[in-house]
Design a protein around this nucleic acid. Structure first.
Lengths: 341, 341
DNA sequence: ATTAGCACTCGTCCTATTTGAGTGCTAACT
DNA sequence: AGTTAGCACTCAAATAGGACGAGTGCTAAT
């Protein structure tokens, strides 16, 4: 299929293209390569590599550019040994263990760090909420017509929701809160349904009316809780990437990120644990077919994962990004498993 | 100083420049104007207007562009009668009264609406928190080591803060919450100090230790509550504005908005109530000296105001934006005063 | 005071022309 | 049989040169 020398040449071409962004010619490779090969030979090999679909020419008299397939074989053959030095590792770890309390903040911090290192956009997902058990709950009076509902899950995620709810006192709300919690504690959010809520009536005989009023509001509210939340860091980086810096493309990217549902699409295509790489057309999300996406998962609790993705042009530093992402996600897993407490 | 005809010509030039974005020549004005004036005459007047500092030429053989001073006199002479038709007013009002519950959502909604209408960036500030009285408070257990503090002010703003706080039960937290509220209710957030919190000890004899632990945490937390929060809508619009659409400028703008403190600077320069217009160099914020900023205030409660600003290139539709902003802020004031309940 | 007319300026657009980085192919070399 | 020197060829990008035209300022006539 592809012989050793061809692979070596392909790697050199891609390395050069990633660095320069311009099509790579045979002479450049001939000079660089330690193989002691003339440009004519390189030309012959390049022609073969093009026939195999790993390279293409933007126009006849230009150098070569890697195709998605070319990037793929390049990435698969990448060696990650010593990609990250001890210094870098220590720096990353110390920046991750920065004393943030909330899981959200830790993740946001990590995403920002990766964005800084890679100069690309980072998308992170927080652990889910719907699939976790309710561990605490409180209704708090905001005003005569509004009540705040606070939900806390056993993975320490906090949700607050404002309900329209009038004519009550905090004392009554406290009683209702206690009763709700008694009945719902331990249920997962998605298991909380009308039946469970309605049972409260037996528990709170004096407040039947209030319960009747509250049930439909609560049901609708719970139904609309998002399963996962997302965080984007380093969007501004993309505005400096030549591939995206014209106004129209930048705007499309911005608008893409405004609709949170895109993040679900992006992450749902990743089914494996650990590092996953989607190059160009390999992406199922249409808007990202000009991009590469490197994703990793971090372990949050026993069986719960969050994901972190780096998004950028296909021409990106795969080696560095993979190593960084791998190290950060491992460190996050350690942090959440309590190793650094 | 400047005579009637000169003003008229200046207005025509600026109208044309706002619409076209290209320097305006004497022939264009001569044809458009109802004054029945030849291009030569217009040229003479234009030369005078340039001497007066209202116009300038980007290069010798080009038409004229308004200076900041020119925009200023143009804006000051603007008539706003019937700038907004009944249809538009009704549409705006109906979109504002969209059944949102939270004040934050109402404002975000309004900002988005204005961004859509004007095609520019909108920055809105929510009413403050520190200067309002505390109306409700609750400590909620998140996990063994974390507690959530919910603060509600009498202007219905909700703040939630996560505290590091271990080894307690919800029952204890409820008692402490009640005691805290008894002592602090009605105080403004900025008035809550160590002395007030410490008095709790007399109220909660059994929990001295807990209180000792809580006091410094609470004090630091309260000190760090932001006075005002901000919301930006329509940032993507700026990516389509020719004046800002190159990558570097767009990135600078994005980064400018990432540091929330810039919003304080932007709004602090506005001291008047109602519509305020800052054109180019009139802006005290250095990064906005190429922009125009139109701000308005809306009344939230008796003596509390929020602000909404439209930010864009100096070449913007002042008339339309001012009218829209004025109408929206008035309608918001009405909504918050309860007229539409 | 206004305007027609004219010379002049200068950015923009269009059209060669040149340049140079690159290719593919062939024939000679090892 | 694989490698390489050599050469003709291609084509994007850079350069140079007009021509164009939108604009000005000034002057002289109305």
């Amino acid at each position: 299929m592809i012989n050793n020398r061809q692979l070596k040449i392909l790697q050199l071409i891609i390395d050069d293209f990633i660095a320069s962004g311009t099509p790579v010619g045979s002479r450049t490779i001939s000079k660089k390569s330690s193989l002691g090969i003339s440009s004519a030979t390189v030309r012959n090999e390049m022609a073969d590599l093009e026939d195999l679909g790993y390279l293409y020419q933007p126009h006849t008299s230009a150098g070569r550019i890697p195709s998605d397939q070319g990037y793929r074989i390049y990435v698969d053959s990448l060696s990650l040994d010593r990609a990250l030095g001890l210094k870098e590792r220590n720096l990353i770890r110390s920046l991750l263990i920065s004393g943030k309390i909330k899981a959200e903040e830790v993740i946001a911090n990590a995403a920002e760090l990766i964005a800084g290192i890679t100069g690309l956009v980072v998308i992170a997902s927080y652990p889910g909420f719907k699939k976790h058990a309710l561990s605490n709950l409180k209704l708090i009076k905001i005003s005569d017509s509004k009540v705040l509902l606070i939900l806390i899950s056993d993975n320490e995620v906090v949700k607050d929701l404002t309900l329209s709810f009038s004519g009550t006192t905090q004392a009554v709300l406290d009683e209702i809160s206690d009763a709700l919690l008694r009945n719902l504690e331990g249920s997962t959010i998605e298991d909380i349904n009308v039946k469970k809520i309605s049972k409260l009536k037996y528990d709170l005989e004096n407040y039947e009316e209030v319960i009747d009023y509250l049930v439909p509001i609560l049901r609708d509210t719970l139904r609309n809780i998002d399963e996962v939340e997302y965080r984007v860091e380093g969007f501004d980086n993309i505005l400096s990437v030549p591939e995206f810096s014209d106004g129209l493309k930048a705007r499309r990217m911005y608008q893409l990120f405004e609709n949170k549902s895109i993040f679900k699409d992006i992450f749902d295509q990743i089914t494996t644990e650990g590092i996953d790489i989607k190059i160009g057309e390999e992406n199922e999300v249409a808007e990202l077919k000009e991009c590469s996406l490197i994703t990793t998962t971090y372990r949050y609790q026993a069986r719960d994962f969050g994901k972190i993705a780096v998004l950028g042009p296909k021409r990106m530093d795969y080696r560095g990004i993979i190593s960084t992402l791998e190290y950060v996600s491992n460190t996050l897993s350690d942090i959440f498993s309590g190793i650094y407490l």
